[in-house]
Amino acid sequence: MSTGIVTTDLRKTFPARRWQGWRRRHVAPVAAVDGLSLRVPPGQVTGLLGLNGAGKTTTIRILSTLLRPTGGTVTVDGLDVVDHAREVRRRINVISGGERMVYDRLTARENLWYFGQLYDVPRARLRTRVGELLDLVGLTEAAQLPVERYSRGMRQRLVIARGLINDPAYLLLDEPTLGLDAPIAHQLRALIAQLAADGVGVLLTSHYLAEVEQLCRHVYLIARGSLVAQGSPAQLAGQTVRRHTVRLVLSVADPAVTAALRALAARHDAELIVDVDDGGRPRFALRHPEDLVGVVVTAVVQRGATIVGLTVTPPTLEDAILTLTDPAVMAR
């Protein structure tokens, strides 16, 4: 039996129907997840990255049984999510950003007790677990207040505690730090690392790449529902062809400088984009595996031009996502 969450050639197509006047019209269905195979092993944090609409949330909803795949399989510790949905639900939980999923009228303690009952957490365990979780997310003081009187951060912390109520073996996190302030987000990251160290298999989606680089041992990068790359964050960052980006803004346009930079780019086989910035000044972006800032500046200064802006961006995970998922974005 394979441990971990394993998806094989996972597909999800939403039936796309639209109302047109009074009749329902079938339009081309949307493939939100398209042949995705990945593995979330226990005891580490696995990242799932992609631009908006790439299919991250859809994937997480399939893994958590909220959606049914249209193709492929998902197993959790060998149990199929469709055939053994109830057993899978016991082992899994989801935390998503946006502080929903708790009851306003109930206190934090009651919310946790309520969901503990739904998850059939053994009575004695539930009693201690509620207290532990309140402690863990720092809501012990406010435990007897109804949630409607909580701030957003407090709610989100309760949502996190709710996601841990059944001691899940696998935790699916969909942008869990969305809308949290820096100290709380920091605590949450520490908590995630600790959970992984304790053996929980975590799947994390996030748009904060620093978070992903810090926590994930392995990252899957998807675009339009398909896998485009995977590896450790460092490997992924290294995979991009265009590494360093030198951005340069000059005070006035000068055909000689432009010609010189074009020649330089051709000589090094680098990519060069020429346009103007918001102030109408000429702007150049040069991308190359090596850092070309020295030769670029020399070439410009030799021709007597004035540099008003200069940035050098080393390779990042963000670059990797942009270049690997959508070349058109990079060209901009």
Binding site: T65, R89, R100, L118
Partner: peptide, 18 residues
Amino acid sequence: VSGTLEALFLSPANRMAL
């Protein structure tokens, strides 16, 4: 609307019992 229905469907609780 409030999003808690999703939390119910996420749980292993028997729907009919709910």
